[in-house]
Amino acid sequence: MSISTLPHDALSHVFTFLDLKDIPAINLVSRKWSECAKREVLWKKYCKWRGYLADIIPEQNQYSWRDLYMTTVRHYPHLVDHWRWNVEDRDSSIEISSEGEIAKRGNGGHNPSIRGNTAMSGMKRHYYEVKIDRIGAWFSFGFASKEFDASAREHIGKGRGSCAYYSDVSTHRIFCPGYDDVNVPALKDGDVVGILLDMKVGSASFYVNEKFVCTVNNPIWSNDVEVYSAARSDMNTARSSKWLPKYLLTGDTQIQLFPALSVGSFGSARVVKELIVPQEPPVAAPTTTKQLKAFSECISLFCDWDLKETETALKSLVCRDVRRFSVSHEQL
């Protein structure tokens, strides 16, 4: 017997263990293989793996996961980028694996930190995660501006221009300058910590194992003048607590934040994924009802817009003019 006798379902199941990069080759093997590679079970997995729409899209929706995946990836090509730890931007006591996925600390150093290699900026949302391979003596994962000094012996969340989920034996909280205590659940080995950073609203939401934990508003843009100036010193603008509204008005995209980690002795963390969700509308308008529906869900989900209104707005869109699309959404 050969593999050709395998039923479609079984073959699709084999493919669910593949990486996305192997799928193009599978499509070109034979007709049967290409049919199996189009199966929903596979695309559902990739959609979920990318982290979007996971909980929210109910199973009974009519459009296909593959369409959704392809549409989304085509419109947001940077979704497929992964961030890595930045070997140039770390305290020397933190070692990085050759592929840059794992940051590991030995016994040396004092409050060492490391930043990721991808700057998050603009009026966008960013979602990124790390998995705790080993929690070590303590663990602190969040984000930091360029001003944060990775070798300054201050951990992420304590140092200037940073905010983090911190956990050790007795303390578990969100550290954020100018923000009151937020107590959160303890972290342990194997947990996945995720952060949804919304640069437009100025909020950061923390997730553990994909469950929502808490949201901190204005974490970096707080009224704390020092923090504010730390994040903005490259701009040399006047120090003012009214800066946040100005940022919102002008859409200033100068701020750059990086995923960042500080870790206690023998701790290590692995990059899981990054999801950048632009607030900008897609370049091309959806053309079929199916796409429209998928798209409305996508947009309403990430922008917290009402689904019905989003759909109506999309429907009223008669041309592919991005600006007009933009305007109709601003009005929502």
Partner: peptide, 18 residues
């Protein structure tokens, strides 16, 4: 799946006799 990873369509066809 591990056998399939990183292979070209030709290699897969040859390996599995498809």
């Amino acid at each position: 799946a591990n056998e399939l990873k990183g292979k070209t369509p030709d290699q897969i066809r040859e390996r599995f006799g498809i």
